[in-house]
Each structure stands twice: as structure tokens, then as C-alpha cells.
Write a protein that binds this DNA or RNA. Structure first.
Lengths: 219, 219
DNA sequence: GTCTATAATCAGATAGAC
DNA sequence: GTCTATCTGATTATAGAC
């Protein structure tokens, strides 16, 4: 550990040092960037606008994030950090936890909007977030397959396996977010996601159809 | 009918008149715009780039579409026209037709990409395509509910109704497109959509589970 | 670390010639 | 109808003072 690192650690502990202030600044910038990306998209967001909302000049911002692309990477990493507890513990999750996450998102349209806008943007050529989303979806599909296997075993309705149902689960979450953002009065994201879970839970792959309709009226 | 309209009709019939050439130009511009929006997004696409690909100057383009926003409206209308036959006949569709549409889309990544990018973009503030997508999703949900009712009746697996399953169907289609665009080698969009249909068809609301597992091994 | 000043580029749109 | 020329404004990024 270098002398500088010791200072940094000490500063962080004290909570009011140089490094702590630096971290605060970075957080403020990332927060502003997230909001503006939600409002105007990545390409539509200017560094000057982010800087203004964060309370500094464009050039001051560039001191913390040397380029617009690095700022985007910062935003994505922050989002990852934000639900890291979630992602890391996915193996132990259940479908109720997923439903809870959807309900939680329903109370945070801004975050959902940032995600939806960037995900759509990411499929364009040479997009700085493309790699991030490609990896993310692989990870999410694997995690969801694990959840489904834990919950329902190897055989799901319609002859599906957890691995084949996982992309559908991810797709439903994203697709519902889009419809909900566009028309929140018309689309009840939480209820709709519950409906999909009912679809996965009803009439299991064991060929036992006696459970059909049971416990599915939580509308 | 005015004298001018008569001339226009005559021109159109002859196939080589002024109006026909004008229409050709517009088509070329719209085609170029669609491609570039797929590649770079709406905000990332410049009029000059569209014009160059269409074989004229930016100012020539502005003669046909007076503003960038009107060009986007043109693109969306063209897309509507493109699958108008589909949308109009939705009432008579069946789920096989939907599966066929998904398979058709799987062969046209460019079109899917334009749609995905614009849909994500549309949730940003004051986006010129927002209204279009809001209306489109309402229409699609209604159409899909009709398809499901025709096919499966009023009761679906998991205690769902056609109206409650419709947003899920739309969500799955959009969500799968996103995952497929990002990772075509990993995500088999057509097979996955078939899986979802199996989910809707298996163990129906009537309690008849005898069809479970049939025709679902097209992995 | 944050600022002012500014470079270098590119955007969408207009005016007017042909 | 399509062009050349031009305007106006915004963008990312750099240089250097404090």
C-alpha cells in the first residue's frame, strides 16, 4: 500500500476528505447523466447539459470523465452496482422476488426509462453499450434459468425447460417495461408480470393438470 | 376531382410520369432513412447521410421532406403501409400466422433493428414517434386479444383472459427481438416464440391438458 | 479540480440560381 | 426539383490560467 493509498483510505474513513468529495461529485454527475439519458437518449444528451444539472461546467465534467463514452460506461457500471446485490444473489431468488423487483421498478419510471432507451440504442452499430447489454442478457438468462429450475424443476408447461423459458421471462420483463412507459394508464406492468408467472406455474410439466386454475386469481 | 388530380392519376397510370418519379424518389429516401436509423438511431442519423445514400443532396432531400421530423413520420407511415395487409387482417389471423411473421422478421434484421431502435427511442420526452408507438401498441394489443380469443376461447392457461395475455404476447415479441439482435447466435427468436405459443396453448383454461407436449419439440 | 477561451466539426435549415 | 452557398447554433474535446 502506497502512502497515497493510505491517505485515500483515511480520507474515505473521515467522510469529508478530498476523495470523498470526488466520489460525491462523480455520483452527482452519474445521477444527472442517468436522468438526461432517460429524457433524451444517449446521443441526444450533451455533456454540457449533464454538467449543468450536476452543477459544474462541461469542462469540469470532462475532468472526471474524459469522454462521453467513458461517462456512459460509468452510468452502466453504476446501474450494475445499484442492483449488484440482486444479480449476485440471483441463484437464491424465487419468482416472488422477481415479481417484487417488477413492482419496485414500477415505482421508478426514470430508471426503467434509462434502461429501455439504452437497451434499444445499444443494437446500433458500434454502440458503446452494446457489449454491456450482450453480456448482461447472457448473465440474466442464465440466472433466470436457475430461478425457474429451483422453483419448478426441469419440466415446465408446454414441454419447456428452464433454459428455454428463461429468454421468454427476460423478454416479457423488457417488453412490458416498454409498453408501460408508453402507456402507464393502460398497462399494469406488475399485474401482467404476475400473469406470466401464473402461465409458467400453471399445469406443470409433470403432466399433472389438476393444479390448473389454482392460485391464479391474484389478478 | 380537380384537373390537377386527373393529371396525377394519369401520370401514375402511365408509370413513368412526373408523379411516379417523385414517388420513386420518396421511396428511395425512406429506404435510406430506415437503414440509417437502424444503424445509428434517429438522433444519430443526419439528413446529409440519408441524402447521400439516396443519391441526392441534403437540400434535395429537404424538398421532399421539409424537416427531419417529417422524414421520421414518413418512415413510420411507410412501415405501417408495409405491414398494412397484416394489421388490417389481424382479426382473421391465427397464432400460426404470428409465428410465421416472427420467422419472416428473423430474415430481416434491418427492419427489426429500425423498429427496436425507434421503439426504445420513443419513450424519451417529446419524441416525434412517441404518439405513433403509443397508438400502435394499443392497436396491437387489441388485435392480439382477438387472435387469442378466436384460437383459444375466453379461458387461457393460468386463469388468463385473452385481454390479459395480449400485452404479454406483444412483450415477448419485442423482448425477443432485442435479445436476438444483440446475440443472434445465442437466441433463436423463432423457436422461442414457438415456445411461448406452446405455453399459451398447453393445458388450456378448459382443464384439458391432453395436448401438453405435442408439437413442442421444434427446438 | 474547476474555470475561461477556443478549436474543430457537424447539425438542421434557408435563400436563391438554374 | 435539385443544386450551390450560406447561416446559425450546438457538439465534443483541448489548452492553459488560477
Amino acid at each position: 500500500m502506497t502512502a497515497r493509498d493510505q491517505v485515500r483510505t483515511a480520507d474515505h474513513r473521515s467522510g469529508g476528505g478530498r476523495e470523498a468529495r470526488r466520489a460525491e461529485r462523480r455520483e452527482a454527475i452519474l445521477q444527472a447523466a442517468m436522468e438526461l439519458i432517460a429524457e433524451r437518449g444517449y446521443r441526444g444528451t450533451s455533456l454540457a447539459a449533464v454538467a449543468e444539472r450536476a452543477g459544474l461546467t462541461q469542462q469540469g465534467l470532462l475532468h472526471h470523465f474524459p469522454s462521453k463514452e467513458l461517462l456512459l460506461v460509468g452510468v452502466l457500471e453504476a446501474r450494475d452496482r445499484w442492483d449488484t446485490a440482486a444479480a449476485a444473489a440471483t441463484g437464491a431468488w424465487r419468482t416472488d422476488t422477481l415479481a417484487g423487483l417488477v413492482e419496485y421498478n414500477a415505482g421508478r419510471p426514470g430508471v426503467v426509462q434509462t434502461y429501455t432507451v439504452l437497451a434499444g440504442d445499444s443494437v446500433t452499430e458500434d454502440h458503446p453499450a452494446r457489449d454491456f447489454f450482450e453480456r448482461r442478457f447472457r448473465r440474466v438468462r442464465e440466472g433466470l434459468a436457475g430461478v425457474l429450475r429451483t422453483e419448478y424443476g426441469d419440466r415446465l408447461p408446454g414441454g419447456l425447460t428452464p433454459e428455454r423459458a428463461a429468454p421468454l421471462l427476460a423478454a416479457v420483463m423488457d417488453g412490458l417495461q416498454l409498453q408501460w412507459l408508453l402507456d402507464p394508464a393502460e398497462v399494469d406492468m406488475t399485474a401482467a408480470f404476475g400473469d406470466f408467472l401464473a402461465l409458467l406455474g400453471a399445469a406443470g410439466g409433470e403432466g399433472d393438470a389438476s393444479a390448473v386454475g389454482a392460485g391464479t386469481d391474484e389478478s
